[in-house]
């Protein structure tokens, strides 16, 4: 069940989210995305880093529509829409991007 990152074995829960937020290193996102056959670009990293900052400030992983609105405010309307975000993270920008960012499953994702 644990994932191997930079030679270390990290605990994840049954849905693949990191068990311990403090275990996160960028390699976590690399390993998880490789399993999903997804190549991470700078655009992906912008969202992953944004999520980590959001969690740092508010102590929650935002729901998709909250993420969309917040990204729009920070990075512009062309990125703050679900088409763009789902394009980057086809399994859902909330769930997939939060998983790569080492956050828990978003609060308010039903």
């Amino acid at each position: 069940m644990p994932i191997e990152v930079d030679g270390k074995s990290l605990e994840v829960d049954e849905e693949g989210y990191l068990a311990n937020l403090n275990d996160w290193v960028p390699g976590v996102a690399e390993v998880m995305s490789k399993e999903d056959d997804l190549e991470l670009t700078d655009e992906h990293w912008d969202i992953i880093n944004f999520l980590r900052e959001y969690y740092e400030e508010y102590q929650i992983a935002p729901a998709v529509r909250v993420l969309t609105k917040a990204v729009g405010k920070r990075m512009g309307k062309d990125k703050g829409n679900s088409k763009y975000l789902y394009g980057l993270f086809p399994y859902g920008p909330g769930k997939q991007a939060c998983r790569y960012a080492g956050l828990p499953k978003p609060t308010g994702c039903v």
């Binding site: 400030e57 508010y58 102590q59 929650i60 935002p62 729901a63 909250v66 609105k69 917040a70 308010g108």
Partner: peptide, 14 residues
């Protein structure tokens, strides 16, 4: 225990 008071700051986003 975790300080969860920052979550109240996110209510506006919701």
């Amino acid at each position: 225990q975790k300080n969860f008071s920052p979550i109240y700051q996110a209510l506006g986003d919701y």
